[in-house]
Deep mutational scan, measured.
Amino acid sequence: SYYEILDVPRSASADDIKKAYRRKALQWHPDKNPDNKEFAEKKFKEVAEAYEVLSDKHKREIYDR
């Protein structure tokens, strides 16, 4: 789930989600993982997609249904 990707509970606040996104984006940024760039790019995209949905109140409500 998007919550698992960002490592936050379903009850996470918008601020918690933003902090988790920043932490995970740094962790999986391809430039930070030169030895495993392809895998890092995949993870980085997953993190971005999760944040896009969970950071938008309307999209998150739909996702949580």
Rank of each mutant, 00 (worst) to 15 (best):
S1C: 10
S1N: 13
Y2G: 01
Y2D: 00
Y3K: 00
Y3N: 00
Y3A: 00
Y3M: 00
Y3S: 00
E4Q: 12
E4I: 10
E4R: 10
E4A: 12
E4W: 09
E4C: 11
I5R: 05
I5Q: 04
I5H: 04
I5K: 04
L6C: 01
L6K: 01
D7K: 04
D7E: 13
V8N: 00
P9Q: 10
P9V: 07
P9A: 11
R10H: 11
R10M: 10
R10P: 11
S11L: 14
S11Y: 13
S11G: 10
A12L: 01
A12Q: 00
A12S: 07
S13V: 05
S13M: 05
S13F: 04
A14W: 05
A14T: 13
A14Y: 14
A14M: 14
D15S: 15
D16V: 09
I17Q: 01
I17A: 00
I17N: 01
I17Y: 01
I17V: 07
K18F: 13
K18E: 15
K18G: 09
K18R: 14
K19P: 01
K19R: 15
K19F: 06
K19D: 15
K19I: 12
A20G: 05
A20H: 03
A20P: 00
Y21I: 02
Y21F: 14
Y21S: 02
Y21A: 11
R22N: 15
R23P: 03
R23K: 14
R23C: 11
R23G: 07
K24M: 15
K24L: 13
A25F: 13
A25W: 15
A25L: 14
A25E: 11
A25C: 14
A25K: 12
L26Y: 09
L26S: 14
L26R: 09
L26C: 11
L26H: 09
Q27A: 08
Q27I: 13
W28K: 01
H29M: 10
H29K: 06
H29N: 13
P30Q: 06
D31Y: 07
D31S: 12
D31M: 12
D31Q: 08
D31N: 09
D31F: 06
D31P: 04
K32I: 09
K32P: 03
K32V: 11
N33M: 07
N33R: 05
N33C: 07
N33A: 05
N33T: 05
N33S: 06
P34C: 10
P34D: 08
P34K: 13
D35E: 14
D35A: 12
D35K: 07
D35M: 12
N36W: 09
N36P: 04
K37C: 06
K37D: 05
E38F: 07
E38I: 10
F39N: 08
F39A: 14
F39P: 04
A40E: 03
A40R: 05
A40I: 05
E41M: 14
E41P: 02
E41S: 12
K42T: 10
K42V: 10
K42R: 15
K43A: 07
K43V: 08
K43G: 03
K43Q: 09
K43R: 12
K43S: 06
F44W: 13
F44M: 15
K45L: 10
K45M: 11
K45F: 09
K45D: 06
E46Q: 11
E46G: 04
E46W: 06
V47P: 00
V47A: 08
V47Q: 02
V47G: 02
V47K: 00
A48W: 15
E49Q: 09
E49N: 07
E49S: 07
A50M: 01
A50F: 00
A50Q: 00
A50W: 01
A50S: 03
Y51P: 00
Y51R: 01
E52I: 11
E52T: 08
E52G: 12
E52H: 10
V53S: 03
V53P: 00
V53I: 11
V53A: 04
L54T: 02
S55E: 06
S55W: 04
S55P: 00
S55F: 05
D56M: 03
D56L: 03
D56A: 02
D56N: 08
D56G: 03
H58G: 13
H58N: 15
H58A: 15
H58F: 11
K59I: 04
R60G: 02
E61M: 08
E61T: 06
E61P: 04
E61D: 11
E61N: 06
I62F: 07
I62M: 12
Y63D: 03
Y63K: 02
D64M: 01
D64P: 01
D64C: 03
D64G: 01
D64E: 04
R65G: 13
R65F: 09
R65H: 08
R65P: 04
